[in-house]
Simulated assay, not measured.
Amino acid sequence: MKFTKPLIKGKLIKRYKRFFTDVKIGKKIVTAHCPNTGSMKGLLDEGNEVFISKNDDPKRKLKYTLEIIKVKKKLVGVNTHFANKIAYHGLSNNLIKEVVNNDHIKPEVFFNKETRFDFLIEKDKQKIFVEVKNVTLFRDKKIAEFPDSVTSRGSKHLKTLIEALKKGYKSYLLFLVQIHGVNNFKIAKDIDKEYYENYLLAKKAGVKFLAYRCKISSKKIEIEKKLKILS
């Protein structure tokens, strides 16, 4: 996924009301849209270097969008709206080696009335659901973690992926790690014990879990490398 225009470098002042961030660019302070409604744990220290995009569409209330935060010398992609675009590019270009040479890739498909998954893939007459989770948490320089706060929605997706297995689908959950340079991934069970327990149930049932790291720059973000999932 390429940025259409060069990103603008600034310094984070604060994030507030979930959707707003104040950023200092030179001597000017601008308010940027924060397209990440999660806790963004560990990312929001004042003075962190950030990269924002600018959109001059007159219909937009905020012309700037927060895209990347630099934390502990690592670039972290925080725009959750891009997660599925990055994943789609990876699936379409065979960058995710467990799901390659697909016949069809359809985004945002309902499994039932309550739940839709990010992708439905058809390959050799087999139907595969892929759910994508954006990962921005790291408390160790080498280990990415998910979730960064309690996620009842995440637990619901795990249970529904098990239901999909029972109905003949293959089920994958892709942890898309938008953190430069980490080597491993694990579930943050101290943050959400219930999610960890549902993860173990889903794993035992046959849901396949994948973690892939992105290569991040101010020009583009794309899938780079598979990570080991630590137990």
Rank of each mutant, 00 (worst) to 15 (best):
K123C: 07
I105P: 01
D103I: 05
I121M: 02
F119N: 02
L158F: 12
C34L: 14
I52Q: 06
V135H: 04
S39D: 10
L137D: 06
N112Y: 12
I29L: 08
S152R: 13
K27P: 01
L66E: 03
F111W: 09
N84A: 02
I143F: 10
D57R: 09
P147M: 12
I69Q: 02
K127E: 14
D45W: 12
L75E: 05
R139T: 07
T151P: 00
T80H: 09
V78W: 11
E122Q: 10
D56F: 15
G90N: 03
D45A: 08
K133G: 01
G154E: 09
I68Q: 06
L91K: 01
K123W: 08
F129V: 01
I143W: 12
K41F: 10
T37D: 15
P147C: 09
K142L: 15
L158P: 01
I29T: 14
V100Y: 14
L44M: 13
F51R: 02
I52N: 07
V76C: 09
N102H: 07
S155E: 12
I121Q: 02
K125G: 09
P147S: 04
I96H: 03
E98G: 07
T115E: 13
G38R: 11
G38M: 11
Y88F: 14
T151L: 15
V71R: 10
P107H: 04
N93Y: 15
N84L: 06
K123Q: 13
K125E: 13
V130F: 04
